[in-house]
Design a protein around this nucleic acid. Structure first.
Lengths: 264, 264
DNA sequence: GGTTCTCTTTGCGGATCCGCAAAGAGCGGG
DNA sequence: CCCGCTCTTTGCGGATCCGCAAAGAGAACC
């Protein structure tokens, strides 16, 4: 918090053992550990320290020196980037199996965003030296981390393309569909975004204003495409939203007018 | 040059030695090989095959299955992504030391963009299996690859923020400054973008139209901030452009009206 | 239960920037 | 040397979407 830019090796290598060492069973189902044998998993986990965060809390802050790497076990975070002028963006949504802080550690630059918990969350924290050492000792781990980064790059480039070529309504459609894929839960009327999400959040993800997002969602609600609510959203007709995202003008489209939902 | 693309693994593991095995001296100055000893460098290079591409040529194409990974030794590429509707974006600029195709290989998905050479270029190509094997065998190499990916993520997120929060003129300013940093060459009147760059290219990088870019550059040229030309651009007053990028309105700004160029 | 706060909705004017159109300018090829 | 190509410039109308403003709705707190 108040600490100056201090690089990752300032802390003594042999620090006191963490309160409780996390159990392998907590992570073995994550794709990050797929390729690793039990011994490697245990070796990596031995260095990790569990940490719990409530909504609104952040494990690290934009501008901080990169000293820790986090793995999300449960819960969800939104990574918010703030410019010097005060403008904000949500660069990505972080869920179970995703890492936080590794990009800054690898770049050896200050963290470029603040991941804010939107749900009660459980994470594992590594000292960044330990994290790098784990990757050097277990190449399979390094490759798994890279896979996650590759997915992150693809998503960023996809959003970049959307931002450059699509109108606001299409971008919002893409955003909510992506949210449904990443954090959706099947409910009676459709797919629910499974964490508190404000219109403002969607605006920060799409480069639109709060007002435009509200107007768009209202219109969709009148057409029966979504169910809105305070920090709450249910997609009733994802396939129609997909058509809107794909470029169909949002005119007089209704649930019935486009292909029905066969498989997901 | 005219050789066909072969799938990843189609070729026998112990294939005949390439026409000429690339020399370690060609890559040892690249950051990608910084942490590796000579033996490791040689081991990785042994599997690589050099390839030359002229302007307009592409080592791989969007939609192709990921079978090869390329390292740029010299020259430059622009990565172009095309949507099904025909809209285009330039997702990134690739120069010496950068990789191409690795993201798709790691994701095990088709390539999401086509890197088009804008200069006579020399690259090294790995069979993707060999590339993965090299990373597993040399963790330092894997980490170096990751550093490049981390930089790529940061740049993408930066552009995402710009696209979401800035006006066109600011985005163009940011884009040309980034170009100058990545591919700039000091000349008498300022910094020259050292490869053929059309207004259309800048438009595809900023999410603007060709016309708006042309208008903006014309205005800057009248103010003496840049020297334009066919596929050609020289930044005469990068510090003023930096002010514009930072949010200063592009009104009656001249070279003299803002801080002078002390250091770079 | 009332108050306060955040979040959401909706209206309206206007700046930005696209989209179409057409004419100039540099460059290579026949 | 002229032709044809691509790239660039410039004008103009109009749609999109922001920015300001203000009221309504839901949840939390005392």
């Amino acid at each position: 918090m108040g600490q100056q830019l201090a690089f990752c090796g300032d802390r003594p290598k042999s620090r006191p053992a963490p309160a409780r060492s996390p159990d392998v069973s907590a992570v073995r189902h994550l794709r990050l550990f797929d390729d690793l044998d039990l011994e490697a998993q245990a070796d990596i986990l031995r260095l990790a320290r569990p940490q719990r965060l409530g909504p609104g809390e952040a494990p690290l802050r934009q501008g901080d020196a990169p000293d820790l790497v986090f793995l999300v076990l449960s819960g969800r975070f939104k990574a918010v980037q703030v410019t010097s002028e005060g403008a904000q963006v949500v660069t990505r949504l972080v869920g179970p199996g995703d890492l936080m802080g590794h990009v800054a550690v690898l770049n050896d630059k200050p963290h470029s965003a603040t991941p804010i918990a939107v749900l009660e969350s459980l994470v594992l924290a590594w000292n960044c030296d330990d994290f790098m050492e784990a990757m050097r000792r277990h190449p399979g781990f390094a490759v798994a981390v890279m896979r996650g980064m590759a997915a992150s790059i693809q998503e960023a480039h996809t959003r970049l393309r959307e931002a450059a070529t699509e109108r606001v309504e299409q971008r919002i459609a893409h955003a909510v569909l992506r949210l449904a894929r990443q954090a959706g839960r099947r409910v009676a009327n459709g797919v629910e975004i499974a964490f508190p999400l404000t219109r403002q959040d969607i605006a920060l993800m799409t480069g639109a204003t709060l007002h435009t997002v509200s107007r768009t969602l209202s219109a969709w609600e009148h057409q029966g495409l979504v169910d809105g609510g305070r920090q709450h959203l249910v997609l009733r007709a994802p396939w129609v939203l997909a058509r809107i995202a794909g470029g169909a003008a949002g005119g007089e489209e209704t649930i019935a007018s486009a292909g029905r939902p066969s498989g997901e």
